[in-house]
Design a protein around this nucleic acid. Sequence first.
DNA 1: AAAATAGTGTAACACATTGACCATTGGAGT
DNA 2: ACTCCAATGGTCAATGTGTTACACTATTTT
Lengths: 283, 283
Amino acid sequence: MSIQNLIASVNERLTPTELRIAEAVLDDPMLLTFGTVSGLADRVGTSRASIVRFATKLGFEGYSDLQKSVRDGVSQQLTSPSHRVRHQDGPAAPIQFEIENAMHAAFVELDDTCLQSMADPIVVAPNVWILSGETSMAGAHALYSGLSMIRPNVRLIQEHSTGRELCGALPGDVAVVFDFARYRKNAVIAARTLSDLGVTIVAITDGPLSPLSSLTQIRCELKIPAVGPFDSSVPAVIAAELLVAQVVSELRDEARNRIDRLEVFWQATGTFLNYGPRPNRDA
Amino acid sequence: MSIQNLIASVNERLTPTELRIAEAVLDDPMLLTFGTVSGLADRVGTSRASIVRFATKLGFEGYSDLQKSVRDGVSQQLTSPSHRVRHQDGPAAPIQFEIENAMHAAFVELDDTCLQSMADPIVVAPNVWILSGETSMAGAHALYSGLSMIRPNVRLIQEHSTGRELCGALPGDVAVVFDFARYRKNAVIAARTLSDLGVTIVAITDGPLSPLSSLTQIRCELKIPAVGPFDSSVPAVIAAELLVAQVVSELRDEARNRIDRLEVFWQATGTFLNYGPRPNRDA
DNA sequence: AAAATAGTGTAACACATTGACCATTGGAGT
DNA sequence: ACTCCAATGGTCAATGTGTTACACTATTTT
């Protein structure tokens, strides 16, 4: 059983310090294979005793025992060459290539100018409506999730309730519409109706030939790769996330305040398991 | 320069004892990687001092220096590509770079073995339940969208109706749970309850330290980059899409038939604007 | 508010490793 | 025979290792 699985099996019972040890070990397993108790303790910023306790909690006699176990695993890996080939190229190699291509293209398309032109109307609009076909819902959901955390009056429209929900749309509002080849009739018609109403349309779609492209200049055009029989949502999700980030940077304090208030709610309702400082946070 | 080459370069000047040491080391390099002076001395049948002299003759400061050199070589050999990816990201890497790194890591993690272990239970389960925190909903939605097109009884559980919906779960069912750092209490508790009920848990999460990891062996562990103030859903979406593709390839005709029937419905209800052959189709 | 408990660090320990130093061996040359 | 010298083995203090017992703190329970 690998050290990762071993940690996984007890991760609920780890103390804060032991968690830090686990993180360090998972981040760089070499620390265990070659390292010493003292080295690991210094690296984690704890005492040697805690390292030993960590080893015993994992079910070993002590650190030496744990290290021996890890080394045995490493020896096996080294002697069997199968391990090295397995990870080179997965079965998804062509898919991987396609998706990475599409991602590159998406990042090129979503440059500052494009993102700004899409974010500007969202910043000032009283209401933001998000429309999407059922199959490209992942991108719409990412946008909804992000936007609704940083500004009010964001609504994700489900296909079955298009009319009922959209009847509240007013001139000056913004509608962000996701739609890709084999364009959903429902989404396109709703977008056209909103456009006629004076709602600004922001289109996230797949090319100048899209029916959405004729509705608005504010749009981005993505390359959509296939994963198995279906289209990938990854480009749409990236577009949504970058758009959210752009809106955040334009709203500045307003967005930050809202996030702070949201955080208060989360803490009060005990939404999350841990409230410690996030591992990767920078804004 | 490898230890073999190093020995070769001085083999003319080795004393008989040193030759025996060299033979032992070449025969089993692990002796050097993990062994001690005493161990090696006993194995060769000589004194510890001779081992040290051997090390200095090879050009090192002492035995420790030699061992360090060997270990560095070994480390490079067995550092997996995914690990290398994870470690090359600097402190302030641009978003694009971070996301592409995370994608690479995701493709490495989601190899055949991993995808199969996750797809197998989904293929045979009577019911599939998809759980997710609100913030990682995009991945869950991608999975729901894909799976529900290729098999029946797939349900996406919203946080507010967890209890009402999940009470229909039975042993033998499968629950696919998305959850990432700052784990949603709701999702974790629901997963644990289902697990106790005898439902197979498939976890898409962010490491062995996730509370989900202690529930099941069937899981994948993704690196989640940050986009602005929020976490990216891209890795979760990719995992979902690859998983769908894997399930499709295992279901084969059953999935194809279902897609065909769905197509008939779409045509009958005029869901799409154009019915021409899809641009990117291959399965 | 007091007591019990869990978590953590400090200090002491027993032991292993290491390389410098010295002793012994064994053979080659004078 | 004797010296010389490289090769080898042994000893030992210094350092570093893993481990354990104990004390302190924070948290929870009573």
